[in-house]
């Protein structure tokens, strides 16, 4: 559904993206993670044709954004962090104007979407009277108005309260369930990404340093919290088993390693093992490892 091939982009002398490629399948929710300046927004900008890549191209449903932008974006909706609407117009007028850039305005479809995002009672009010949460709902409504097959979300839950975040997550998951919508989700909220996404990619200084399934995080490596002495002797045993120390008191082992055999080897080597407890590896662990 969405293909990014070897994207490169520099702003002046500063490289923003360096050979970034990935694919998002139909009906998949794909998370894009990285520090500020890692290249996430540039990636989204290239997918939307708002940023011209120095090399590479983005394709949506097989159509190149760089060559046939209008055709490629026909079935795409997008939401940006802190969306800016025409404050002096009502929510409805904003929807009408923005939808006119995509095609004919279907008032019935718009009313249905407005109802679904929970703005029916306030859609006639001027946007300047909206709260942050209402603006995000309006942003969602405008993104859904062209009846997209692909949804690009750039920090959509930024600034929302916990109820708002949960509502947003359930809404997006519902859309995927209902319409098989493909979603590219760019966020700093790792817990959100972990709960919503099927796969994630981590960008660091414009390079993709990780890509994998969220469900496979726990299977990639086994992580344990340990309390051992002497530490240097324990590290030797762990490394011999194919593992390594992630941080003081935290070690990893390959998926096929037998933890009890490693503990026995440590004891056999004269290491005092006071604690050895498995830890479920979170997306945050992975993110911190990859971006450290």
């Amino acid at each position: 559904m969405l293909h990014l091939d070897s994207l490169k982009k520099s702003f002046g002398r500063k490289p923003a993206l360096d050979d970034v490629s990935f694919e998002v399948g139909e009906g998949e929710i794909y998370g894009l993670l990285g520090h500020n300046g890692a290249g996430k927004s540039t990636t989204l900008g290239i997918i939307l044709g708002m940023v011209a890549p120095d090399a590479g191209e983005a394709r949506i449903r097989g159509v190149s954004v760089q060559r046939k932008r209008a055709e490629a974006l026909r079935h795409v909706g997008s939401i940006f962090e802190s969306p800016s609407f025409y404050e002096y117009l009502s929510g409805w007028e904003n929807l009408r104007i923005l939808a006119s850039y995509s095609g004919p305005f279907d008032a019935d479809a718009a009313r249905e979407i407005v109802g679904r995002v929970g703005l029916a009672g306030r859609i006639g009010s001027k946007v300047r009277t909206y709260s942050h949460g209402m603006r995000q709902r309006l942003a969602l409504a405008q993104a859904l108005l062209p009846m997209p097959r692909v949804l690009l979300l750039d920090e959509p839950t930024d600034g929302l309260d916990p109820e708002g975040i949960k509502w947003f997550r359930d809404f997006i998951l519902g859309l995927r369930e209902e319409r098989g919508m493909t979603v590219l989700f760019n966020s700093h909220l790792l817990a959100e990404v972990e709960q919503m996404c099927d796969r994630v990619a981590i960008l660091k200084q414009g390079r993709r340093v990780y890509e994998g399934r969220v469900s496979a995080l726990a299977e990639d490596e086994k992580i344990f919290e340990i309390d051992v002495a002497p530490a240097d002797r324990a590290v030797g045993v762990i490394e011999a088993a194919g593992g390594g120390m992630l941080s003081p008191g935290r070690m990893s082992l390959p998926p096929d390693a037998d933890p009890s055999a490693v503990v026995a080897a440590m004891v056999g080597a004269g290491v005092r093992v006071s604690a050895f407890a498995p830890v479920r590896r979170s997306l945050e662990d992975l993110y911190l490892e990859m971006t450290r």
Binding site: A70, F80, S102, P146
Partner: peptide, 18 residues
Amino acid sequence: EDGNLRLVLGRPISRLRL
């Protein structure tokens, strides 16, 4: 300046037409 253009440019409209 207000950021409205981002929402417009995310739509399938060419810059010339806009």
